[in-house]
Design a protein around this nucleic acid. Sequence first.
RNA 1: GCGGCUAUAGUCUAGUGGCAGGACGGAAGCUUCCCAAGCUUUUGGCGCGGGUUCGAAUCCCGCUAGCCGCACCA
Length: 486
Amino acid sequence: MKVDDIMDVALRRGFIFPASEIYGGVSGFWEYGHLGTKLRQNWENAWRRHFLGLDPNYHEITTTNIMPKGVFEGSGHLENFNDPLTSCTKCNQRFRADDLVQEATGRSVEDLTPLELSEAIRAEGITCPKCKGELGEVNLFNMMFQVNIGAAGGLTGYLRPETAQGSFVSFKRMFEVLRNKLPMGLAIVGRVYRNEISPRQGFFRLREFNQAELQIFFDPDAFEEHPDFETVRDTVLRVKQFGSDDIVSLTCGELVESRGIGKFYVYHMARVQEFYLTTLRIPPELFRFRELGGKEKAFYNKVHWDVEVYMETLGGFKEVGGIHYRTDHDLGGHEKASKQRLQVNIDGKKFVPHVLELSFGVDRNFWALMDVFYEQEGERTVFHFPPALAPVTVAVFPLLNKPELIAAAEALYTRLSPHFSADYDRGGSIGRRYRRHDEVGTPYCLTVDFDTVEKGTVTLRDRDSMAQEAVALDTVAATLIARLCP
RNA sequence: GCGGCUAUAGUCUAGUGGCAGGACGGAAGCUUCCCAAGCUUUUGGCGCGGGUUCGAAUCCCGCUAGCCGCACCA
């Protein structure tokens, strides 16, 4: 199985491994080794360059992982994800305990604690609605991890379940700092936490993971337009529309005209696709937008397409991101809960900005790179990562263990390492060293031989073609840069 | 969270109550060595915690993790 092969390399070579492994691990928590950290950072930096470059007024901020309870009252996370659950001890069906008690007693049970609900279930003799089996203890279940801030009796806080809230609570100040202009984008790349009941699918559903999100605040009256729309009007998007099983190719112009989706939204779809096809080099047939509708779509999302990549290891197209038109749901909620005015005043027009959210799961994107670019070519295992994303850009080898070659190779490594992600390896045969670096996706290897000492050339070996060419020492850095930025 | 199966070195694996073995990998060295060649030396393991037993990798219980199914996944 491909998933086993990739996980084997990932564990063996230092991409990812189970968290707190020596204590047995905890499901849903993973650690990144040195190569995984580099690959993830490279993805994140590519994401920053692409999305923050879309508009001079899109910026990255850094906000806290722990936020006070009030934030999640404003966001709706507490209200919507704090369900008291009980399950049948016989058939394991789960139920909302408050619904069952309320139905049996006719009383409002909103303020009852889980313990009181458990007692009420026993007192009323409530049994499983499905099989009449005995119901278990009531447990409050919220996807958020709760933490105590300060000494006993202090504030209740939560680990953020999405980075987005950081942008919303920072909106008021950042709008002022950035001199009252819309659209304004606030990006956050960072850790988030969700207490999944039962994470499965290996690395795909995590309890602690990374998001890269860009919240774009804009005037809702401008949703139908975008100043650069003409540059993407004829761009062909791969889309799977709600209610259809087919992936079709539609231009941005067609999507606006046939579906009435605002140009502001479709423009950003084009830029997202560009990121996947051009920067990440995902083959087009493995990429699509999937429109969500009906129950799948959160009530506050007016338009919602997921970004999906086909992953063989996960058996199909899987969500790696989403484009959500969240309207004024978030700022409106925080306005009520915080009692702060979050409306803006632009040229005398007062309104609460709407939000377009570009949201990406970093770890899922990381896994997508591992899946899409993994190749087993006979005995050769290779990751064909785009060179700019590969954890190691260039590896330097002395052909032989001769003092003059080692000295020359070390000098070359020392010269390159401040500017490139470089590695040095003198262990085993030259062929073995090439294979070692194929296995972690290093695009370029430089081998120092006697020609290096005598004529000042090194052998540049290309990962994908395995072709070799002589390159002058003086031009090695320039050659690498030219290949990294075609 | 429930049920079934599973857990031996970095990876894969042999071992069914009596000395934990192999392959690959890693390290050091030899070999003017450009695609996992060869040789020498070496490293390193029974997931965790209880129990049964003279003796447990092996049998039993619990925990943790993984896989499959159910449930969950705003």
